[in-house]
């Protein structure tokens, strides 16, 4: 697969993943641009992998977790936390926006673990590889995150698979 073909086909999915991961479209744009830049430089090797997209997605996670991204100066532009969930008066929308704000306030590794499991649909073993930690650590991170998100798994247990 040519790099241009990959970008045209997969950049929207990468942007979605990065936005869900960061809760901020400006940061997602920045991360995806940086990652695609580095992927371009190594495309000869990445393109021969069975799942180039999985590898590039992993690059997105690593970039998101990198310390350069963790500088406090990069945090105040959060667009999500400023949303006021009263626009249309809908309870569903208010609950959704409240959930986004809670998601945005999660520690980065907890948020990454939640997104990889419930958005990307990865098993815990693969999440552990992506985050460079043990499976038990992944599970404890997710458990703490769900408590913060006030998600009760027994209420309606199901998971999500990335389809794009």
């Amino acid at each position: 697969m040519e790099f241009a073909e990959y970008v045209v086909g997969r950049r929207p999915a990468l942007m979605r993943f990065a936005t869900v991961l960061t809760c901020q479209t400006w940061l997602a744009e920045d991360i995806v641009s940086d990652v695609l830049g580095r992927a371009f430089e190594r495309w000869d090797r990445i393109s021969v992998m069975a799942e180039p997209h999985a590898y590039v997605r992993r690059m997105v996670v690593n970039e998101y977790l990198s310390w350069r991204r963790r500088l406090a100066r990069t945090s105040p532009r959060a667009e999500v936390a400023e949303d006021v969930p009263v626009g249309d008066g809908s309870d569903e929308r208010a609950a959704r926006d409240a959930m986004i704000r809670r998601l945005a306030r999660l520690p980065r590794r907890q948020r990454a673990a939640v997104v990889l499991r419930y958005y990307a649909g990865l098993p815990d073993a693969e999440i552990a590889v992506e985050l460079g930690c043990r499976v038990t650590t992944v599970r404890s991170q997710i458990s703490r995150a769900l408590a913060t998100l006030r998600v009760d798994l027994t209420a309606n247990p199901h998971t999500y698979q990335e389809t794009r």
């Binding site: 869900v20 479209t25 997602a28 744009e29 798994l153 209420a155 309606n156």
Partner: peptide
Amino acid sequence: MTDLRALNDAFEELERRADAATARMPLG
């Protein structure tokens, strides 16, 4: 407490924002 539907709704809203941002991005 809520269930995973609220988390899914949040993901879908973030996807919508991502799509809007992607539409503004030059392909480059």
